[in-house]
Design a binder for these strands. Structure first.
Lengths: 168, 168
DNA sequence: TTAAACTTTCAGAAATTACTGAAACTTCAG
DNA sequence: CTGAAGTTTCAGTAATTTCTGAAAGTTTAA
């Protein structure tokens, strides 16, 4: 139920959220009919939900021998699930904005107001670009390194200033 | 228009997104009537939208001398805007999930299935906790330090392993 | 080639969410 | 006080999104 409520906040809709929650909590892979019965939703809805979850690269299909049904289970570890949601949301939420901003910044400002507007857009653009670039770099680090970095927290400042001193 | 379309992805609805976009792009503060005329939406809708933006701590009210009207403008710099959206979304999207997970983990598992479910929930809980804790630490760093860190990107691994060697 | 067993699609219904505009409320100058 | 100039609220309507279920599509064993 909670996954349903949160589902919409996390980028998909109620039933899709519930479906994913169910798959994560359930050890064995589930068939479409099992999902529809467990959550009391129509068979068609399950089919659309699975499609949605696949577009997020969050579920995988399995086949059992001697059984024509498809069985679904979460794709990858909890960690992978997090990076995928993160990545997909970036694609949907940030990338289109970034490309719109770029397009707008190519236009010559026609008057004072547009100069200001572009200044603001430019600032947003640079910020989004720095942050998404950084996020990409972090994702390319090994989970171990990333974990060390996170555990270090704001203590990282000290490490960086140490580095600066050494260089000098 | 784009801010409207993106609005819903970024956590608020179309008109609220448009309103905020307008305020950011426009140098002078705007009155409620000006906003409703610029975006072609009802006066009442503007009032509700402002309330919503205030709940995100994204707009501020100004008063002009000799004028009883309220004028609205974005609260804080682009950087602050980003951290606020980030923080508010964490509150709305992550915190409730975290507390639900905690509650569930307090229950004794009644059977094998619940043992597995709790194992999964525990993993999600720890991940969310680590990440949100880290996000908090980052936000407490000075923008300058944070910027250095971001520019360093995945090069940070090297700095950390350097530190480890020095300690040894 | 057939038909049983399954999946997908999609038009329309249901549910949810957003918007309007008129009425209620607030504030303040005179 | 009063009322003009503003803001907020909220019931009802409009728009959007989600869900259902029947029909169409697909796959495979025999």
């Amino acid at each position: 139920m909670h996954c349903g409520e949160m589902g919409s906040r996390w980028g998909f809709n109620r039933t899709v959220g519930q479906m994913y929650g169910l798959l994560i909590i359930h050890e064995e892979a589930l068939s479409a009919v099992q999902i529809s019965e467990a959550l009391n939703i129509s068979r068609g809805n399950v089919s659309m939900g699975i499609k949605e979850l696949q577009s997020w690269r969050l579920v995988q299909v399995q086949h059992k021998p001697k059984d024509r049904k498809e069985y679904y289970s979460p794709a990858g570890s909890i960690w992978e699930m997090a990076t995928r949601v993160f990545e997909e949301r970036r694609k949907r939420e940030v990338d289109p904005t970034l490309s719109l901003l770029r397009d707008n910044l190519l236009d010559e400002p026609a008057n004072q107001k547009e100069v200001f507007a572009q200044k603001q857009m430019n600032e947003i653009h640079d910020l989004l670009e720095t942050v998404t670039h950084w996020a990409g770099e972090l994702q390319s680090m090994s989970p171990d390194n990333l974990n060390t970095l996170m555990k270090l927290g704001s203590g990282i400042s000290k490490v960086i200033s140490l580095k600066d001193k050494l260089i000098k």
